[in-house]
Amino acid sequence: MITRTGLILFAIWVVILATTPLHADNYIVRTAIMISMYSVLALSWNFIGGFTGYPSFATVAFFGLGAYVGAIAQRNGVPMVVAWMLATIVVGAFAAALGSILLRLKGHYFAIGSIAVVEVCRLVISSWRSVTGGGDGLNIPLLRWSPDDVAIFFLMVMLVLMIIVFALNAFVSRHRLGFGLHCIRQNEDAADMVGINTTLYKVIAFTLSALFVGTAGAAYASWVGYIDPTDSFSILMTVKVPVMVLLGGAGTVLGPVIGAASFVVLEEIFWSNFLDWNRAILGMVIVFLIFFLPGGLLRVSFRKVRDRLKGREGVAT
């Protein structure tokens, strides 16, 4: 569910991101693109990991697959936007097929299975040289516009994707689908007993978690102009996305957006200030998150924090 305040906050956030090219330099615009892209990923993951409670690590497989489908299509002369749509459809179909097999597993086994999918995708892409270029990666024809225009264009693309996935999140959370997914998260057997078609619901959630990740991957490939298997299927990214959602608040609509934005900003700060130690600092953020913010930023009771700051600890809220 999303409140009116939440909707207004999201709208303000979109406007802030969209207006960055007007007043900020290209580095900030690039960060804004990354924030919108990771918001798409985190919001998509929310369908399977947040609403349904299945610990999926397959997001990056969909991202990489989308990037490769888009890149290969573009290299063969397909217009850019058509290539993105193609990537969306292929990744969606892949996720639906994969989901109907993989979602029979639960808990740890599902987690391991989804990690294995990422590994298999990466290995297949890196060894299928004739189509994917193998470990050398692929070059994608760049847009022949000025760098500023390219940045603005891709910022808008990612923002539109983010708004679509956000709207879809808000819609699902009100719809009987969202309710059914919530039941599955709480007790799958009981949900099955009361007549929810759990298999269908889970496959839908899994497909939704992949669809726009595929588009984002293809758009990312067109934006950066070069992809390779290690980058497109990075194990770090596999864990980053769930961490973002956990940071914001899993199962809420606004949480993934907040989580993605704060994570990208934190990461940029750590990269620029602690080059040697950025990975360790990210690790510490994760450990801190697990112990002190188990419900995410959205679940922090600001009233309690305020009371504590005022020294009124222990006041009933």
Partner: peptide, 26 residues
């Protein structure tokens, strides 16, 4: 967090792994 869901424990050990990995590389 040993009784928490898979995602929590897996993410926690992954975070600890990032720290250890970084220390070893340095």
């Amino acid at each position: 967090v040993v009784t928490a869901p898979v995602l929590t424990t897996l993410t926690l050990t992954f975070g600890l792994d990032m720290i250890l990995y970084n220390i070893m590389t340095v």
